[in-house]
Design a protein around this nucleic acid. Structure first.
Length: 369
DNA sequence: TCTTATT
């Protein structure tokens, strides 16, 4: 777990958004004005994959415990996911568990962030700043130090070059807890030279994604369509980098020598040659059979393994009714055939701890024709 | 010189 925390903290500031008091008991608390205190049950989830649906979102967080309500936030006009959502659990312990097990989970190209939601209020909106002209040598920590004098920083990020992976592009974002803090930071820092810098920086409010111009919306829709057309295999090189995608903190390690890779075509021909019927994309999607899980395996392991390959709608670990231990297998449902095939090709033969997984499409038990 | 943090 410590490894994961390290990875996240280098990427982005972790702030305690959560309940500040420690004296409050668990369970719903009704305040004097009659409203429910959900500070210990309500979570905000950031950096969700663009194509994740409400259903997948609910399925992922529902695997932790009973959900009171949840919502994937979408653009009012385009219906596009804004990449974040809220989950309100019934039990505060489940909210805590969700943070501990799902924060830092890698899904496709994203690393999701799970944290307590701050109480909703107008004062925390539009508090995101766009900063440019930063010295290339300035680190995220340096930037935070510069801005922290104006208020509580919720997130910060310096954009880096995609190719050289790590070189600062001299632009970044700072999100303050309160809009007035952001305003003060603009007044104090826009046009100023950071200590030792040659050029002044520009500090302004970031573009608000939900207030895009018509032109920007068209561009976005076009890009979305283009991505869809290119298909999910476009980034397969990246997707195959399992060592990067799978979080070491889960004890998931690949062993290159026992890592057979089949093409989706091979899977097709193997299954058809064997006269086996796939269960097919009926209703929910493509069901995948995962064999040789450890008795301790839980749903989060399956999300962790399959999430990077694409849209996962459901995972299930089959447990013994009396011991509640995993019986050694489970199922994963994926929406898209290509992504499911890629996951199978990559994960079949994958070494999870000291076990080698067997992964295939679930077959229906029928007599051969 | 713009990623997606307030329902």
């Amino acid at each position: 777990m410590s490894r994961m925390v390290t990875i996240i903290s280098t990427m982005e500031t972790q702030v305690s958004n959560g309940p500040s008091g420690t004296s409050m008991p668990n369970g719903p608390v009704i305040s004097t004005n009659g409203s429910t205190d959900d500070s210990k049950t309500n979570l905000i989830v950031n950096y969700l994959p663009q194509n994740m649906t409400q259903e997948e979102f609910k399925s992922l967080f529902g695997s932790i415990g009973e959900i009171e309500s949840c919502k994937l936030v979408r653009d009012k006009i385009t219906g596009q996911s804004l990449g974040y959502g809220f989950v309100n659990y019934v039990d505060p312990n489940d909210a805590d568990k969700a943070i501990n097990t799902l924060n830092g989970l890698k899904l496709q190209t994203k690393t999701i962030k799970v944290s307590y939601a701050r109480p909703s209020s107008a004062s925390i909106r539009d508090a995101n700043l766009y900063v440019s002209g930063l010295p290339k040598t300035m680190s995220q920590k340096d930037m935070e130090q510069l801005f922290s004098q104006y208020g509580r920083i919720i997130t910060s990020r310096i954009l880096v070059d995609q190719v050289t992976a790590g070189i600062s592009r001299g632009v970044g974002f700072i999100r303050f807890d309160k809009r007035n803090e952001a305003e003060e930071a603009i007044k104090g820092l826009n046009g100023q030279k950071p200590l030792g810098a040659a050029e002044p920086i520009t500090v302004k409010f970031a573009n608000n994604p939900s207030q895009k111009t018509g032109q920007a919306l068209l561009t976005q829709l076009y890009q979305t369509a283009a991505r869809r057309y290119t298909g999910p295999l476009h980034h397969q090189t990246q997707r195959f980098r399992l060592d990067n995608l799978l979080n070491a903190s889960y004890g998931v390690k690949s062993s290159p020598t026992v890592f057979p890779r089949f093409s989706p075509i091979t899977i097709d021909s193997m299954t058809s040659l064997a006269g086996v019927n796939l269960t097919g994309p009926t209703g929910a999607g493509w069901c995948i059979f995962v064999y040789n899980l450890s008795p301790e395996a839980d749903e989060s392991v399956l999300w962790q393994l399959f999430g990077p390959f694409g849209a996962v709608t459901n995972v299930k670990v089959i447990r013994d009714f009396t011991t509640n231990k995993c019986k050694g297998f489970g199922f994963v449902t994926m929406t898209n055939y290509d992504e499911a095939a890629m996951a199978i090709a990559s994960l079949n033969g994958y070494r999870l701890g000291d076990r080698v997984l067997q992964v295939s499409f679930k077959t229906s038990k029928q007599h051969k024709a």
